[in-house]
Deep mutational scan, measured.
Amino acid sequence: MDVFMKGLSKAKEGVVAAAEKTKQGVAEAAGKTKEGVLYVGSKTKEGVVHGVATVAEKTKEQVTNVGGAVVTGVTAVAQKTVEGAGSIAAATGFVKKDQLGKNEEGAPQEGILEDMPVDPDNEAYEMPSEEGYQDYEPEA
């Protein structure tokens, strides 16, 4: 019985440690998101679009440190934060509304985080759909 109880105690310690790591990862992701939003706020009209992409990228980098179902929630929060940063930029006159959601080359930025393969159960990952990809044929 002692062996059984000791095993359960060790398992509990492992769960607590994993929860603490997840909590730490979420806190880091939130900190990076805040950094990115402050970065966007300090940019001029020309830099705002690039700044919004930076927020998304920093958040995406930190999301990889967070495991399990938390990833889905962090990704949703990050996307809403990026959308909010863009709205703030438009409201303050840093950028025109028609410039939001495009990178410096004018290509749409939507789907940055949505296409990231995420499995809350950590069982399997699927690649994003290939609808947006084109076949590449090298020139002879």
Results as ranks from 00 to 15, higher is better:
Leu100Asn: 10
Val49Lys: 07
Gly86Tyr: 05
Glu61Arg: 02
Asn65Ile: 08
Glu105Trp: 07
Glu57Ile: 02
Thr72Trp: 04
Ala91Arg: 02
Tyr136Ser: 10
Gly73Lys: 11
Thr44Gly: 08
Glu110Met: 09
Met1Ser: 00
Glu126Met: 11
Asn65Gly: 09
Gly41Asn: 01
Glu61Ser: 10
Lys34Asn: 03
Gln134Met: 06
Val3Arg: 15
Asn122Val: 09
Leu113His: 07
Pro117His: 04
Met116Glu: 10
Ala78Asp: 00
Lys6Asp: 07
Asn65Cys: 13
Gly7Glu: 05
Pro117Lys: 06
Asp98Asn: 12
Glu131Leu: 05
Ala17Leu: 07
Ala56Gly: 02
Val82Leu: 11
Leu113Ile: 14
Val3Cys: 08
Val49Ala: 14
Leu8Val: 03
Glu130Arg: 02
Asn103Leu: 07
Val70Ser: 00
Gly86Asn: 12
Asp115Gln: 14
Leu100Ser: 10
Glu137Asp: 07
Ala19Phe: 15
Ala89Asp: 04
Glu105Arg: 06
Lys34Ile: 08
Tyr133Ile: 13
Gly36Lys: 08
Glu110Leu: 01
Asp121Phe: 04
Ala107Thr: 08
Val48Ile: 15
Glu126Val: 03
Val77His: 04
Tyr125Asp: 12
Gly31Phe: 10
Thr75Phe: 14
Ala27Glu: 01
Gly73Tyr: 01
Glu131Tyr: 12
Lys12Ile: 08
Val55Cys: 07
Thr81Asp: 03
Lys80Pro: 03
Thr44Cys: 04
Gly51Val: 11
Lys10Leu: 03
Gly106Ser: 09
Glu139Lys: 08
Asn65Pro: 03
Thr44Ser: 07
Asp119Lys: 11
Pro138Thr: 08
Lys97Val: 15
Tyr136Cys: 09
Glu28Ile: 05
Gly68Glu: 03
Gly132Glu: 08
Val15Glu: 00
Thr72Ala: 08
Thr92Pro: 04
Ala53Val: 14
Val15Asp: 00
Asn65Leu: 08
Thr59Tyr: 00
Val118Ile: 10
Val49Gln: 15
Ser42Asn: 15
Val40Trp: 00
Lys80Cys: 07
Tyr39Leu: 03
Val66Asp: 01
Gly93Cys: 05
Gly68Tyr: 09
Glu110Asp: 07
Thr92Gln: 12
Thr22His: 02
Glu61Leu: 04
His50Thr: 09
Lys96Trp: 15
Lys32Gln: 08
Gly41Cys: 03
Ala19Asp: 00
Ala17Ile: 10
Lys23Glu: 00
Lys21Leu: 13
Gln79Met: 03
Met1Cys: 00
Gly93Glu: 07
Val118Phe: 05
Asp98Trp: 05
Ser9Pro: 00
Tyr133His: 02
Val70Tyr: 06
Glu123Pro: 01
Glu105His: 13
Met116Ala: 15
Ser87Asn: 01
Glu83Ser: 09
Ala89Ser: 09
Gly41Asp: 00
Lys43Cys: 15
Val40Glu: 00
Lys96Thr: 04
Met127Thr: 10
Val37Phe: 07
Val70Arg: 01
Asp115Glu: 10
Tyr133Ser: 04
Gly132Ala: 11
Met1Trp: 00
Tyr133Glu: 08
Ala78Tyr: 14
Ala76Pro: 03
Met1Ala: 02
Pro138Glu: 10
His50Gly: 07
Glu57Lys: 11
Tyr133Thr: 09
Lys102Trp: 14
Glu123Val: 12
Tyr136Asp: 02
Glu130Leu: 04
Glu137Arg: 11
Tyr125Leu: 12
Val48Asp: 00
Ala19Glu: 00
Gly25Glu: 09
Thr81Tyr: 03
Gly25Ser: 14
Glu139Arg: 06
Ala53Thr: 01
Glu20Trp: 15
Val55Gln: 00
Gly36Leu: 02
Ser42Cys: 13
Thr81Ile: 13
Val118Lys: 14
Glu57Gln: 14
